[in-house]
Amino acid sequence: MSELADLLTYYNVIFLLKGMATTFALSALGCILGGLFGTALAVARLTTGPLTLPLRALALVFTEFFRRVPFLVTLMLCFFIFQFSGLDVSTFTVGCVTVVLIGTAFLAEIVRAGLQSVHPNQWHAAETMNFTLLQTIRYVVLPQAWTVILPPAFGFFILFIKDSALASQIGVIELTYVGKVFNNRGFSAGVSFGVILVAYFMLSYPLSRLGAKLEKKLGSSRTR
């Protein structure tokens, strides 16, 4: 226990909190930008006609690829691409690009499932009144689908908080990296990583409770 007290100095606690903030920021960015791009991909996949076929194919390949390649491998690909491109970017930027790519792929599927959950008769009614696809989605479908989209999207955000631990591998100074630094400074692995596990828990647990509440509330509310 005295080792734990030694570790929790003022500066170490600040360092730990910064790591938590970085972990949070990484996941939030991945979900916000990934949500925007993912929505675009989901809409692209709903287009019809031969003109937009390349768009549909591209969206399909993108979502399937980044959902079927491990986080670590995508991370290394991004890392080396930036390295060979000669662009001088921080490892944090590489981490951000990685989470946005992966977030886009996963959220595209969540959004697509949400859009498809809206009854076909709503799409038909809009179509017979000459709504364009974008008008249908904006005025009719998304307002009804967001209660279906939000709970799994929030769940993905919480999952991402833990998955982004891998960003420590390229030196992004997030929570897991902080644990490795503590360990390297001579604190025992048990205390170093124990503290980090507790910190993750403090980040993830309240959010998952919030997510459960959100799901319950949206589930019982009306569609609007």
Partner: peptide, 23 residues
Amino acid sequence: VVFFVNTPQLVQIYFLYFALPDM
């Protein structure tokens, strides 16, 4: 369940691999 679902697998394995030898 709550503990394992709310912490990263990577750090769990770090703990098993690096901290258990101390015990």
